[in-house]
Structures are given as structure tokens and as C-alpha cells.
Design a protein around this nucleic acid. Structure first.
Lengths: 349, 349
DNA sequence: TTGTACGCGTTATCAA
DNA sequence: TTGATAACGCGTACAA
């Protein structure tokens, strides 16, 4: 005779435990949840039976009653791009300590997919969502509606600002300005810029930083030296090859890349053209990717504290979830310049 | 007067939509789920109202009824170690196409945490779990019970085999044997091994492969040249330093590292000791980490198809979830040797 | 074509 | 201290 410990799903319920003991489901519930008003002896009996039968509380049912899932959605453009795993690590660290878990989604830098996964996260009733957005248009209506719907949202890295959600990122504009000015101080004048889509927040902020540096230092911004492509290696490779097709006299002597992967792609293109870095073309990036110090020559870049971005974003989201009156803030974490060899060290011209 | 579109959670229910339209909840349900038996005109009215009110189906309630969450747990030792993001990418690719999502957990290589997160995943009633285990003892009782409880499990990379769950990994033993024999063919005889904990499946398999190569080629296995530590850079660094404390004549002339991060740590230690790679000490790894081709000298290693491991594991899990009669299998994906410079190229001695 | 009743597993509430 | 009941939001099974 098979034991009747299980319902159709193979999982034991409160009611089944209760039946075995001749008590009510409520009493079992109270025992399991450490409620005060349970007789010590019945509690003992119950917990023993719970263990024996392998009862596991059904959080789905609990969530239906409480409207809490203890699950947070995380929306990321590309989990295999080295910045994001470290962010996720920071997020996980904080959420785990609060007994939350991560529903991880990858958008492949595709806004349509981003909308789709966020819809799914809403359906699953996550308690909040952390988003690094791939939106590349000026149409913010999707996020306006999302935020107005009341679900706690915190953006990180790639933010959609001023819509009522907090945002955790780094000082993208100032840092890009700073690293561009580093090139300028070294004597470079013809500086090109490899951009990602500028409607992504970091795209605009970093580009503004580049322009600011050029303008403040009285340098000409040559539209031909500004190329926009994707945020990955291939984007950098293709963009750089476009610049390399310019007549030699028009080519930039230095390159500011919107991030390290783009810089890596560009370095490959430069080397394939049999040009030297930094002697022929200097280059700087942004991220301090794990590979930045390993490439040849090592890449001058901006160190972006990925782990801290993740921790801060998760903390902010938890605060937003728990205290309804929690402030909306834009937090900028501080970066630092990492000078290596790809930018050269002597005055040039 | 505030609209009464919302219940206490701010989310609209079927019943609320129904009330607005003077129909029953069931009719709305049918319209939303494309059931055949709904009048075209009422369906149109309903869908319009659904959109207007921002109704989002409550999957928590649906899951309670159906015992399906369309969520899969993923248990990973360390998400920031470069092998795993690529695995996750593969998992995500497959799951997304089946409309499943990932509940991602990080165990920090800690089995106690592993048990805790798996318990949480069970409580959340995930439809299945993908696990790369950090178990370092011979006590498999936790996994025996888990698998016997009936929840679909697929292990990947770090497997617990022969307990009734499928396992997707690479040919760890054969590949380690092969890369060790590559060193032997180059003329190395005193070969050291930097191991991770050997109760982790890959720890044992790779160590066996190393031993097999040595024995088959009639080389002595010197216990002093075998050091066990963690699976990360620090583990490799510390282990290598232990070897470097040996008298110079006892030191290994070549090193097989259990994975690339360990190899990187070891390379740092070797360089700090002012020894040359490969002239003084040759080294090989396992993974083909993104950094392997960038370090100095570039690391000879085994290419491990992380993305494919993820895809295969996810496919297998979905099959296990959907077809109760699906076979338990151990799948070994094929690796390939990547010869670079860290192993040298001439006969030595 | 549409509606009613019931149950999924749990807890809040009130009664005993 | 314990139990009965209702409710969370939805869909199945049936009835109208």
C-alpha cells in the first residue's frame, strides 16, 4: 500500500500533516511558523511529523495570500559581458542577506525583449525590479507606465532618469571628461570617439563628457571622427575600421572608446592595420574590464565599481520595497582613472 | 473619487475587469486566454478593457492551481567566475525559447548555502533545478533525498552522478590526461598538479586524468608536487607558493592546473619568484577562460564549451520536466586542446 | 456562448 | 490553546 503522504504534485501539504496528527491545518501552520500560541508538546509532535513527511511550505500559496514573493527581477543587457556578472554578484550578496532571490533575465540589448521579460516579471509578481535598460529611443512611455503602476523599480548603470525611479550609476560624464583630458594633456589633438547608441543613458553621458573635454580645451570636434556602433567588441572593431578607412592625414591620433569591450575590438582593428598602439594611435576605454590590464598594451581606462553598483542598487530596491516613503534618488558612485600604457606617456603630435 | 481599478496590491484582477463590463470573471479569463468559445464582440470589449485597466495575469494564482511556475532554479558556485556567465547565457537562451525564467542563486562554493538556496527554490516550487554543486564530502544524502522527492534535477559541470539525475559536463578526465601528455611529449618529467577539492566531481575527474597520463607514461607521481586548494586565483597562488618553497632541485618543471583561474594565480606566484614561464616552469590550465589568450605568456589550456554546456543542460532539464519518462543520461561534451605558449614548445630537461 | 461552484495551499480573523 | 471559515486570483468542470 503506497503511503498517502503526497498529493498529485508529490509535495506534502499542511492539511496532510494535520490529518496524520488529528489536528487542524491552522495548528500545523502555527507550529511551523513559530507562532506563540501553540502548546509546546503539540508543537514538538508537529515538527517531528513535518520532518518525517518532508513537508516544505508552499511559497506560491503564501505569496497569493500575502502579495509578497521575496523575489526580485533583474534585467540585464548581456550577462556574459564582464561588467554584469560582478554587478549580479553584488546584488546577490545584498538580496541573500534579506532572504530575497533573483529572477535573472537577459535582454541581448534588445528593447522588445526587455519589454517582454518585464511583463513576465510583473506576471510573476516580483516584489521589485532592477533594470539596466537597452532602450534606444526617446519614447519613455513603457517605463512611465511601468513606474506609475507602482511596482518598485531601481535602474542601474543604464538608467532612465526623472521618471520617478531611483538610479544607481557612476559619474559617467565627469569620468569620460577626465580621461579625455588626460589624453589632451599628453598632447593629443585629433581625438576620435567610438560611441554606443546615444539614447542609452551611458551613451549620452559619456559622449557629453568627451565633448565637454574637447570644448573646454579648445579642440575641434570632427564629426568624421565620431562613430556610433554597438557596446561590444564587434561594435568597436567595426567602428574603428570605419575610421581607418579615412585618408591617413585625417585619421585620429587617439581614441576614446565608450567602454572596454569596444576598446578591445578597436585595438584588434588597429593591429590588423599594422599600426602601433599607442605610437600610431593611442586608445582609452571605460569599465576596467578584467581583461584591461592583460591586453597588449594594457588599456588605460576608468575603473567602474561593478560590485558596489550591484550592492547599492539592491539595497536601494529593498528600501523602496520596504518603506513606501523611501526617497527617489540618483546615486553616482565614484570611478577612478587607471593609467596604463595604451594612452602613451609622452607629448605627441 | 479614486478609481477602483485596483485592489490593495495595485494590481487589477479578472474579477475587477469583469465587474466593469458586467460579465463574469470566467468570460474575461476565456477572452484573455484565447479560449475558442467567446463571442467575438465581447472578446473585443474585454480585451480593450483589459488594456485600459492594465490587467496583468497573476501567475502566482495560476501556479497555485496548475502546480507549474515556469521558473527554473539555477545553482552556481560563483557567478563572477568567467565560465559560469557563459553557461548561464546558454541556459537563458534555451529557457527563454520555452517561456521559462531563471531563478539564479550563487553559493560562494559553500555547501551549506547550497542546501539553503535549494530549500528556498523548492519552497518557491520551481519546475526544476540546474545545479553545479560545491559538495566536498562523500555524504550524498542531501541529494539522494532531493532527487527522490521527485523534483527534476540536472547537474552540470560539477556533477553528483549515479543518484538518478542527469549530468552534463565535459570529458574532464580524458582532456586532463591529454593536456598532461602534451607536456610529457614536450619532454617534461617532473610535473606538479594544482588541484581543487577532489570530492567535487571535476576535482576528482581531472586529477584522475593527470594520474592516468603520468602512469601510462611511466612517470613518477610525487605526492609533494600535488597541492590542493580552492578553484580560484587565490587558491592557485597559494598552492603554487607552497611548491615554490621546495628546495630548487625538488621543484616541478611543469604544472597542470585544475582550471584557468588557478593557473593565473600560479603564474602570478611564479613571476613573483622571478622565474620564467615556460623556461623555468611551464604551466597549463583548463577552461579557456576569456583571459587565457591574454596573459603573459598566453596559457595553454583545454577549451570548455561553456555556452553549449548551458544549452544542453537546460534542454535536458526541460525534457525531464515535460516528459516524465525522459531518460537519465550522462552527457560529455567534447573539449579541445588550445596550445599556446605557457607550455613551451621544445624538448626540455 | 456564458455563468456558477469549487479547489489549489496558505493565513487572518473570529469563535470556542 | 485550538479550530472553523473565508479569502488570495485563477481555471476546470459542469450547468444553463
Amino acid at each position: 500500500m503506497p503511503k498517502k503522504n503526497h498529493n498529485k504534485n508529490g509535495s506534502v501539504t499542511l492539511k496532510e500533516v494535520a490529518a496524520e496528527l488529528g489536528v487542524s491545518a491552522m495548528t500545523v501552520s502555527r507550529a511551523v511558523n513559530n507562532s506563540p500560541n501553540v502548546d509546546v508538546k503539540t508543537k514538538k509532535r508537529i515538527l517531528a511529523k513535518v520532518k518525517e513527511m518532508g513537508y516544505t511550505p508552499n511559497l506560491v500559496a503564501k505569496s497569493l495570500v500575502s502579495s509578497k514573493t521575496f523575489t526580485v527581477g533583474v534585467v540585464i543587457p548581456e550577462i556574459s559581458h564582464s561588467f554584469f556578472p560582478d554587478v549580479v554578484r553584488g546584488i546577490e550578496e545584498v538580496l541573500d542577506s534579506k532572504e530575497y532571490q533573483i529572477l535573472l533575465t537577459n535582454t541581448s540589448d534588445n528593447f522588445e525583449k526587455e519589454k517582454k521579460v518585464i511583463q513576465a516579471l510583473k506576471s510573476k509578481r516580483v516584489d521589485g525590479i532592477l533594470i539596466s535598460s537597452s532602450l534606444t529611443t526617446d519614447d519613455f512611455s513603457f517605463y512611465e507606465e511601468l513606474i506609475n503602476s507602482g511596482i518598485p523599480i531601481v535602474f542601474f548603470d543604464r538608467c532612465i532618469e526623472n521618471l520617478g525611479a531611483s538610479c544607481i550609476k557612476v559619474n559617467d560624464q565627469a569620468a569620460t571628461q577626465q580621461i579625455t583630458e588626460h589624453l589632451i594633456k599628453l598632447g593629443y589633438k585629433k581625438i576620435g570617439y567610438l560611441s554606443g547608441p546615444k539614447n542609452v543613458s551611458i551613451g549620452k553621458a559619456r559622449f557629453d563628457g568627451f565633448n565637454m573635454a574637447m570644448i573646454k580645451n579648445g579642440l575641434a570636434i570632427d564629426e568624421k571622427l565620431i562613430v556610433e556602433n554597438g557596446y561590444n567588441e564587434k561594435g568597436g572593431y567595426d567602428a574603428m575600421n570605419e575610421l581607418l578607412m579615412l585618408p591617413e592625414k585625417d585619421r585620429p591620433r587617439a581614441i576614446v572608446a565608450v567602454n572596454d569591450p569596444v576598446a578591445f575590438g578597436a585595438m584588434d582593428a588597429i593591429k590588423e592595420a599594422n599600426l602601433r598602439i599607442p605610437e600610431d594611435i593611442a586608445i582609452v576605454g571605460f569599465t576596467n574590464d578584467i581583461r584591461a590590464k592583460l591586453v597588449t598594451p594594457p588599456l588605460t581606462t576608468v575603473n567602474q565599481p561593478a560590485y558596489d553598483v550591484g550592492k547599492k542598487a539592491a539595497s536601494k530596491l529593498i528600501a523602496t520595497i520596504q518603506e513606501k516613503g523611501d526617497l527617489v534618488e540618483n546615486v553616482e558612485l565614484i570611478t577612478s582613472l587607471v593609467i596604463r600604457e595604451s594612452c602613451g606617456s609622452q607629448l605627441k603630435n
